[in-house]
Amino acid sequence: MKIFYLVLLFQASLQLECDKEITAHVGGEFILKCKYGINHFLYSKKYWCRGPSRSNCEIVADSENSRNTHRSQVIDLNRRGLFVKVTNLRFDDAGAYWVGIDKIYADIMTQVKVIITEVPVSKPRLWPLSSLVDRPTCWGKSVTLRCGCAKGTGVRYAWYQHIDRKDFLLHKSSDLYLHCGAVQKDCSYFCIGSNDISSEKSELISVQVLMPANSSCIYVVNIQGQPIYDCADRMSTTTVTTPTLTSCLVIMNISDNTRNQSLQLNETTQGFFFIRSLTGLPLWYILLRWSSFLALLIIICTAVKCTRRRYKKYANQKKNIHCRRIYHACQ
């Protein structure tokens, strides 16, 4: 009996040839091409059935369109071959199938194994949920970054921190929440999207810490494809601030005619030339500007005064000459 079964399989393999295994992605489609003996089975019905064995197989579609579904088709193109097309694949479509040809006494059948896998993930793209054009990080505000793959099914996301040439897993999520407490020093972040069959890594996000959280919390986030910005103006108004006034007690002995007494003088030291006024400019700059203005004003006043003197002297000379002419004329 086993020998007879093997002979039937051998004859079937000669009369009907198909791929033994086909792999496709969920949501996609596949087309299985087969060859068969045109001289013997040109007008025979061909079918596509599902089941673990020849005797236990449920016909899904056939070449006469009597059992074709909206997802499965059997297309007989005669000499060009026999095609089985299945679309909109689902995970439950995986399993054992058979391609068969109607024949008296015993059909010609060959088994095909269908494997359905996840769609491979594409390279993750990174973007902020709020715009970076307003530079919120320059004022220590938090930023949420999102990781997403344009292609892929069943994608799982994980965020990593790259620091000191090492990668550390932060959490498994599509979002990364950056805030002053989490950003301590310069580092990079990246996201990995993966499923059961593939894995892809995103571009690096560069985070530069200009001032730590215990100061004013200023940091810059650079993402490829996003606007590039800096916090130079914020740094210029933050780094040169009014220095902390430091007080020291200096004890001075003052001699009097009647008695000696010790006085405690509270001396305040501060960077005078770096004190900022209400306008945010250093005091030395304001003094220099007003001094220049005052010098220019003095020069202008002097020039005007000299001009008036010259004009007055010239007028007196002209008047004297006129008087002399009149005097000579009278003589």
Rank of each mutant, 00 (worst) to 15 (best):
F4L: 15
L9H: 03
C18Q: 01
I22V: 15
H25N: 09
F30E: 01
K33R: 11
Y43K: 05
S44H: 05
K46D: 06
W48M: 03
G51Q: 07
G51K: 08
N56G: 03
A61R: 03
E64S: 09
E64I: 03
R67W: 04
H70Q: 07
Q73A: 14
L77Q: 12
G81W: 03
V84L: 08
V86K: 01
R90L: 15
D92L: 07
A94T: 02
I104K: 09
I108K: 07
T110F: 02
V112S: 13
K113T: 08
I115R: 06
V119W: 03
V133H: 10
C138M: 14
K141A: 09
Q161P: 00
R165A: 13
L169D: 01
L178H: 10
L178P: 00
A182S: 12
V183P: 01
S188V: 00
I192C: 04
G193Y: 06
S199F: 02
E200K: 13
E200I: 01
E203L: 09
I205H: 01
S206A: 14
S206N: 11
I218K: 02
D230H: 05
T238I: 05
V240R: 12
T242N: 11
Q261A: 06
Q261F: 15
T268W: 14
I275Y: 05
R276A: 12
L278I: 14
G280K: 02
P282K: 07
L283I: 15
L283Q: 04
L288Y: 08
R289H: 13
S292R: 13
A303W: 08
K305G: 08
R308W: 09
K312D: 03
K318E: 04
K319H: 07
N320R: 12
R325H: 12
I326Q: 13
A329N: 04
